[in-house]
């Protein structure tokens, strides 16, 4: 807990304890911790001299910020029209089938969260999904199975594969 709050403090120090930096602080803390805990929001509120309700209100608004713990790997599949018209529906079904969870859920073993995202601006290689911070394009059901297997097989993070 102390570590997590120290990280939170570090991020606040970089941006300055000012409400204008609140959205960036929340996103970065979330990025480092995987989600935003009540303790972290309390720390941000007290450092920025804001009511906790304000911090919660802003944090709950943005889709890149999660108030619930997510799985070890987070899949964000683009559900918008450009990806849809090039076979997105089949990929959607393949993801649910492969991970054994519906969209919006986290697997019981805490390994996977399956979420949707709005357009991530990689439309020319649709259908597109993000696994953690990696972008995968030109997806089809077969490729989905291969990609998921790769993450199951090895630990990895960062970069675009």
């Amino acid at each position: 807990m102390e570590d997590v709050l120290a990280t939170t403090d570090g991020i606040i120090d970089v941006h300055g304890a000012d409400q204008e930096a609140l959205v960036e602080i929340l996103r970065e803390v979330n990025e480092v911790s995987g989600h935003l805990s009540r303790e972290q929001m309390q720390r941000i509120a007290s450092r920025l001299s804001l009511p906790l309700s304000k911090v919660y209100s802003v944090a709950s608004f943005y889709s890149l910020i999660s108030l619930e713990p997510l799985g070890k790997h987070v899949v964000r599949f683009c559900q918008d029209a450009p990806c849809h018209v090039v076979g997105g529906q089949q990929v959607w079904e393949a993801l649910e089938h492969e991970l054994g969870i519906p969209f919006g859920a986290t697997s019981l073993d805490g390994e996977w969260s399956l979420l949707t995202t709005s357009c991530i601006g990689a439309c020319a290689v649709g259908p597109v999904m993000m696994v953690d911070s990696d972008i995968h394009g030109n997806l089809d059901p077969q490729k989905v199975r291969e990609i998921i297997a790769r993450y199951r097989g090895e630990e990895r993070s960062g970069g675009i594969v």
Binding site: D80, A81, P82, S118, C119, G121, A122, C123, A124
Partner: peptide, 11 residues
């Protein structure tokens, strides 16, 4: 804040 689906010119 380019978020219009199918648009990535600004990026």
């Amino acid at each position: 804040d380019e978020s219009e689906p199918g648009t990535f010119k600004d990026r």
